[in-house]
């Protein structure tokens, strides 16, 4: 979803304000949200009581910046919150709660209602695994990582024999 203010960045937050007694919602990106907040604070500057009036100086607020990163792809949680983009499937598990709170701002419900992939073709899956491992083997051989290459070679042999057995079973 694109930001409804700048129409450029992805919207990450649903922003609500009351205009003429009516609640108005807008889906905004982080940049436009901070601009909105600035606008709001400039409007209320004169009306806001000084800290001394409210009972002494306001406590110093420290903004906690999360340093969590996805262990699989290295994407930082902070970046996910800023851009509404993740680095890999594992990010969805690693940052489950935080991602759900972003998703709540973007979608109405958090339960998938659409189609599911058809994964019933075991031969096709074996073939694609085999293809991936063969490509990876070529690349680790180029990098002269022989330990990794030996492991991949064994896995490929295992997959090849599994494929032969599966194909024989379906004939």
């Amino acid at each position: 979803m694109l930001c409804q203010r700048c129409h450029k960045n992805p919207a990450t937050v649903r922003y609500a304000e009351v205009v003429d007694g009516k609640s108005v919602h807008q889906d905004l990106c982080a940049e436009c949200l901070s601009r909105c907040k600035q606008d709001l604070s400039s409007v209320f500057t004169l009306g806001t009581a000084k800290p001394a009036v409210r009972g002494g100086p306001a406590p110093q607020r420290t903004v906690r910046r999360s340093r969590r990163v996805c262990p699989v792809c290295g994407t930082a949680l902070e970046r996910v919150a800023e851009t509404a983009e993740v680095g890999c499937s594992a990010c969805y598990t690693e940052f489950g709660q935080e991602i759900e709170s972003v998703l709540e701002g973007l979608h109405r419900t958090l339960r998938h209602q659409g189609k599911a992939p058809r994964l019933d073709n075991s031969i096709a899956r074996l073939c694609s695994d085999l293809q991936t491992k063969r490509v990876l083997l070529r690349s680790v051989l180029r990098a002269e990582d022989y330990e990794q290459a030996a492991r991949l070679r064994d896995e490929i042999r295992g997959l090849e024999s599994g494929l032969r057995l599966t194909e024989a079973g379906t004939d």
């Binding site: 919207a11 499937s89 969805y92 998938h112 209602q113």
Partner: peptide
């Protein structure tokens, strides 16, 4: 629960 996982959170689901 979340359907197809995409790089943009705005596309996840279908």
């Amino acid at each position: 629960r979340l359907g197809y996982l995409t790089s943009r959170l705005g596309m996840v689901g279908t």
